[in-house]
């Protein structure tokens, strides 16, 4: 472990700690909480999209399922939040496994449409099963997260929890990517045939990543629902799934920081513009299109290039300085169809 490599992470930890101490404006804290929640979900999706090269248009459903299971367990059965959260994530893992198994056996991007259909089915079910889910009226009065005597009943505390979860998952994800299976995963994105020839279990690998990314989304859903204290089927509709994909693409597919950057951008931007008026769809579509066409590495790579160019100009002596650690290197893209 190099210290240099960990600088961004250390900075993140430091700024989270500083923010928790210094920021008292609940509006800012709330926005940061939402950014953290979305960043957790997009980090999982990024693992799938950027590292395994598979697209899912149903991750909103995993988010919604995580939220709903936890909401139902805590409001109907009085389960403690932590148990409800664990159960919600476990259940979503099982469902993701069942959905992913058939879709991922097939070559190519059947997963895209399979997950889209799955997402719609979940959305319809959440609306129709009124007895269980409250139907379109949703579930209200969901308790705030608590662990024993500690209750996350203020924005500052909730902020701390969300970002601690994010940092923990970030370290976990980075370790996964840098581990043996992680390298196998990246090989997969390069060429499935080649990876298979090297003895990598391609389908099994893809399935594992799919389930893992669904678990991230479910956890984000759990964090969301105990913060907002209300959930309706709207929480994980198709538009939300697309928004998650947009966040990943805008931030940078295959970059660990991409999900966070995308989530921050697409949460802050609409707030800054304060009046998106009727242009929000055009803006989302435009960002998506422009990013994949002109900056396929997303913001992370754009910034990296910029900073690399600046540094190269400063220290022209060190040719190796342009790219940093392995982790943040853009994943080789599959170019053949």
């Amino acid at each position: 472990m190099h210290v240099r490599k960990n600088i961004p992470l250390i900075l993140l930890v430091a700024s989270v700690a500083a923010a928790a101490l210094l920021i008292t404006d609940p509006y800012i804290l709330t926005m940061l909480i939402f950014i953290g929640i979305y960043a957790i979900a997009t980090m999982g999706l990024n693992l799938l999209l950027g590292f395994a090269g598979q697209i899912s248009l149903g991750h909103g459903a995993f988010f919604a399922l995580g939220a709903y299971v936890s909401a139902i367990l805590t409001t109907r059965f009085g389960a403690p939040c932590t148990a409800a959260a664990a159960l919600a994530v476990a259940l979503v893992c099982a469902i993701a496994w069942a959905v992913g198994l058939p879709c991922l056996r097939l070559k190519g991007h059947y997963l895209a449409m399979g997950t889209l259909a799955f997402g719609e089915i979940i959305h319809i079910t959440l609306n129709a099963e009124v007895e269980l889910t409250g139907g379109p009226s949703g579930i209200a009065g969901i308790p705030v997260l608590s662990l024993g005597p500690f209750s996350a009943d203020s924005d500052a505390r909730y902020f701390l929890i969300v970002w601690c979860v994010f940092i923990a998952l970030f370290v976990l994800t980075r370790n996964i990517i840098n581990s043996r299976p992680g390298r196998a995963l990246q090989a997969l994105h390069g060429s499935e045939q080649a990876a298979g020839a090297m003895g990598i279990d391609v389908a099994g690998m893809k399935l594992t990543v799919f389930v893992l990314s669904a678990a991230y989304a479910a956890l984000a859903g759990v964090l969301y629902v105990h913060f907002v204290a209300f959930v309706s089927p709207q929480a994980g509709d198709i538009m939300f799934s697309i928004k998650m994909v947009t966040m990943v693409v805008a931030g940078g597919m295959g970059h660990l920081w991409g999900g966070l950057l995308g989530a921050a951008l697409l949460t802050v931007l609409p707030e800054m513009l304060s009046y998106f008026e009727d242009y929000d769809m055009l803006i989302y579509g435009g960002i998506l299109l422009a990013m994949v066409m002109f900056m396929p590495g997303g913001l992370t790579q754009g910034l990296a290039r910029l900073s690399g160019a600046l540094r190269a100009r400063r220290t022209a002596v060190r040719p190796g300085a342009v790219t940093g650690g392995r982790t943040e290197d853009p994943v080789p893209r599959r170019t053949a169809q």
């Binding site: 961004p8 900075l11 700024s15 940061l32 802050v268 910034l303 990296a304 910029l306 943040e328």
Partner: peptide
């Protein structure tokens, strides 16, 4: 380059605050 990412993120936090 990663630093830049982080700096920008930090700035974002501050400007919001």
């Amino acid at each position: 380059m990663k630093k830049l990412c982080t700096v920008i993120m930090g700035c974002m936090l501050l400007s919001l605050a």
